[in-house]
């Protein structure tokens, strides 16, 4: 056990799984870096250094720099997974899904069903997501709702370093295609992470705060925003449960519903664009399954329905923050119903 950054936790998960299983390979743009170039080998180790050092231990046979050719190599990862390897492909930014989505949602995701249960596709596709990096509209999106929409995919969104390591090892050992989303703002955050390998099962939410007044569901980095809001609210006498679903597919609906049954109030914090995102999905779930428990309307804290802006002041306005979560929680606490509506 030692303090490790989110980046180190992911690197360690990859290293330990590659040591454990020779079928695990990495592929992606600059995952080693410097292939064929006159300068340093392992020049980058991924565009933000997450896979640094792995090519040194495992060689270029298993750490494959790809051309900038997402359709080919994401499709190759799917084909390799269906034929005996356990590839971990890196898409760099989720925003690049547009040039290889067919290989993900029409091929990898559907093999098993289309082939009558006879295919096994143990594929992990890692990618960065999220705003806050001043990276503008084509390098800052969330897009996990799109993957979550696709049957056959599993979608994992770790909220911290501990979560990232255990969920990634689970993803690599999992026999289904897994989309693994890394919020790039988290890479330098540190926490205690076991040195040993461990797995966190999919479909089990983590309750990062326990309280009785309001349930807050956060997705990915928004779990930290929700925790900060809950801590501030606790000092004001409002106690919140914060739920980190960990995976949006499968989604631990039971933990969310159980908590709403207890608190009667729900706030969802989702960094994804507000239409058809996890907040709307979870809202629909709760409206359908726990309507009777609700004591106030559900509140969704999401960005506006605009692309992610570049200018720092605009981007800061765009991303949900703890103050907006606190305001939403206070709003559901103060909700008094339609006065006289039933008189």
């Amino acid at each position: 056990m030692s303090k490790k950054s989110f980046r180190q936790a992911i690197n360690e998960a990859l290293r330990q799984e590659m040591r454990r299983d020779p079928r695990v390979i990495l592929m992606g743009e600059d995952v080693a870096g410097g292939a064929g170039a006159p300068g340093d080998d392992d020049a980058w180790g991924g565009v933000l250094g997450v896979t640094k050092g792995l090519v040194g231990e495992f060689g270029r046979e298993r750490v494959l720099d790809t051309p900038l050719s997402e359709s080919a190599y994401i499709g190759a990862a799917a084909g390799a997974a269906a034929t005996g390897l356990r590839p971990v492909a890196e898409l760099m930014f989720v925003d690049f899904m547009g040039v290889c989505f067919d290989q993900i949602f029409n091929q990898a995701a559907k093999f098993r069903y289309m082939f009558g249960g006879h295919a096994v596709t143990p594929l992990v596709i890692r990618m960065m997501y999220g705003a806050g990096f001043r990276a503008a509209s084509q390098h800052s999106q969330c897009l996990y709702p799109i993957f979550t929409h696709i049957p056959g995919l599993k979608v994992v969104i770790p909220s911290s370093a501990y979560e990232a390591k255990g969920l990634l090892i689970q993803a690599i050992r999992d026999d289904d295609p897994v989309i693994f989303m890394e919020n790039k703002v988290l890479y330098d955050q540190e926490e205690e992470v076991p040195d040993e390998s461990y797995t966190i099962p999919f479909g089990e939410a983590n309750l990062t705060r326990e309280g009785s007044d309001v349930t807050i569901v956060g997705i990915g980095r928004m779990v930290q925003i929700a925790n900060a809001a809950a801590d501030a609210l606790a000092k004001q006498g409002i106690s919140c449960t914060v739920i980190d679903p960990r995976t949006t597919s499968p989604l631990d609906t039971g933990s969310i519903l159980d908590s709403v049954e207890e608190t009667g109030r729900l706030v969802i914090v989702d960094e994804a664009s507000p239409r058809c995102n996890m907040a709307t999905d979870i809202s629909a779930l709760v409206a359908q399954e726990a309507f009777g428990a609700l004591r106030a309307p559900i509140r969704m804290v999401c960005p506006p329905h605009v692309p992610v802006p570049f200018a720092p002041n605009l981007e800061d306005l765009y991303v949900p923050d703890a103050a907006r979560v606190e305001a939403a929680v206070r709003a559901v606490m103060q909700y008094a119903g339609k006065q006289g509506a039933r008189a």
């Binding site: 079928r23 080919a72 499709g75 084909g79 390799a80 390897l85 590839p87 091929q107």
Partner: peptide, 18 residues
Amino acid sequence: GGPPLICGAALTAKVLKT
């Protein structure tokens, strides 16, 4: 849809030396 998948199958053959 097929050609990228075949690159993957060929990669499997190469890495696992089948």
